[in-house]
């Protein structure tokens, strides 16, 4: 399936855009994670990488739909 992924912080530098379209092999958050990890190996070097679906942290089991708002959440550093 094809999804649009918003990027923030260092994940924007790695993916090279504010919103990147990704062809996922499968339909879960975990599948997206695997696809991203393969396409952008620099993501694997981060301390952590969470994926948010519709503005909530999502577990790997969550099923994606093409209309979901999906975002990459690299290690946060607010405050």
């Amino acid at each position: 399936m094809k999804v649009k992924v918003k990027t923030f912080g260092i994940s924007r530098d790695i993916l090279g855009g504010r919103e990147v379209t990704v062809m996922v092999e499968g339909s879960s958050v975990g599948d997206l994670r695997k696809t991203l990890s393969r396409l952008f190996p620099a993501l694997n070097k981060l301390n952590s990488l969470f994926i948010a679906v519709n503005q909530n942290y999502a577990a790997d089991e969550v099923t994606l739909s093409e209309t979901d708002e999906i975002a990459l959440i690299p290690p946060v550093s607010g405050g």
Partner: peptide, 27 residues
């Protein structure tokens, strides 16, 4: 404040004289 630093999606980039880094991104 402790929780904000752990879970709220906000990112900080530090700029030095010789470069920059996203804080906490790498080990």
């Amino acid at each position: 404040i402790d929780s904000l630093k752990q879970t709220v999606p906000i990112w900080k980039r530090e700029f030095f004289e010789d470069g920059d880094q996203w804080v906490s991104a790498h080990p």
